[in-house]
Nucleic acid binder design. Structure first.
Lengths: 224, 224
DNA sequence: AATATATTCAATAGAATTATTGAACAAAGT
DNA sequence: ACTTTGTTCAATAATTCTATTGAATATATT
């Protein structure tokens, strides 16, 4: 870190950022932050860790330059420092998927028959959506939907899905998406809807990757 | 890691990969490996750490799935597991450059007036090189050059540069490159050549990024 | 000013990571 | 078989990281 070798000093800096990424809780926090700004308490609740622990992890991320804190009333809101952080997380995900066998094991064990779901990509969705052939379903909680969502998407949070099946078409393909590639929401939504006879597939990526690709995002006007 | 929550399990796997990146020595090893396969001893020498320590770091990288080992005679050769690792390292570099102030401080302190060197990008180099306006200079050691280099590049290792100035044109722009964005070789080459009155600039990236962009690479035939 | 809420700080014990040392191992040459 | 060379293993002490706990701080509300 404080060596006189400039290259080593630089690598030490890169290493500090990598170290900030080297804990599951922090990666999960970053995934939620990729959806938008959030305060400490809600992040702690979402990731199911104590507030003090979430606070410490968030400060670690801040020290590494990955997130930025902002005071709002008596809560502190964190957000990603940079959209390139999403790129970095994506690269980390891809390398891990490609080279760590354990990932396949976990997916095979929990997400039954992931492959049979045949996830659909950005481009495929754009093509079909242009032709009006698809209903896009956002299964995230309403607050996240309001902060930004795919064009013409319908929002039915996963919890309400069973009670609102009548809002979805039986004669048209449905594409469900949620926070990111491994967010369980879309997986579960696909499973539920299939059981009810819907023609449904999962979007390969989530909203952050969609935004990163420069694709359009709608936002509710009433957004504060 | 062995929780029953699939999302947490996956993030734990991603975190293990990030942890493998969380040490300066390992990042430096990866940078050299991005140039091509190498054995433990040469990597230890290049990074100026003990062989035992290099071995341990390399094994850590292997366990994380980032590199692959192969026995060759009585030495063990390591290589990157995947070209996506280069993408990951690049993303880590970009995020760190953008958000960690310390990086600017280090660059300002050691690489005098980095900005005044006005590094040239892939695309710019391609354009000029097509017009035959540029001499491309590879300042890496001969063995690395032989394993792959930019088209029509001239190889003069940094150490020999002062003695071989007569091989370079005074009336044409020279673009120097080396291993990667922060490899000191190109910086120093530019400085030396400027002092001798050459019109020289530095390529923004190194060979691994060039290859990753899908651009052509030449290789010596005699390469084993 | 007093109270409530949200966050951070400080202290702690247990766990993990680091570089170094010297021994152990495997392949090649003599 | 023996030696040499290149690599890995095992043990170690110093350092760092982690989650938890309860106290301290900052902002808004009454």
């Amino acid at each position: 870190m404080s060596t006189d070798n400039p290259k080593k000093s630089l690598f030490a800096q890169f290493a500090l950022v990598a170290k900030a990424l080297s804990h599951g809780n922090r990666l999960e926090l970053l995934e939620f932050l990729a959806q938008g700004e959030r305060n400490v308490e809600s992040l702690a609740r979402l990731t199911d860790i104590s507030v003090a622990n979430a606070s410490q992890h968030l400060q670690r991320l801040q020290r590494a330059g990955l997130v930025i804190a902002r005071r709002d009333g008596h809560s502190v809101c964190y957000r990603l420092a940079d959209e390139k952080v999403v790129t970095l997380l994506g690269a980390l995900r891809v390398v891990t998927e490609n080279n760590v066998a354990e990932v396949d094991r976990i997916i095979a064990g929990y997400f039954t028959s992931k492959d049979s779901f045949e996830p659909i990509s950005h481009d495929q969705l754009l093509n079909r959506s242009r032709e009006g052939l698809v209903t896009v379903l956002d299964v995230r909680p309403k607050e996240e939907f309001d902060a930004g969502h795919l064009p013409d998407a319908v929002n039915i949070p996963l919890k309400e899905l069973e009670n609102r099946l009548n809002e979805l078409p039986k004669d048209q393909e449905i594409v469900a998406y949620c926070r990111g590639s491994y967010c369980v929401l879309a997986f579960e939504a696909v499973e539920k809807l299939r059981n009810h006879g819907f023609d449904v597939r999962r979007l390969e990526e989530g909203l952050p990757e969609w935004k990163l690709a420069g694709l359009p995002v709608e936002r509710e006007r009433k957004n504060i």
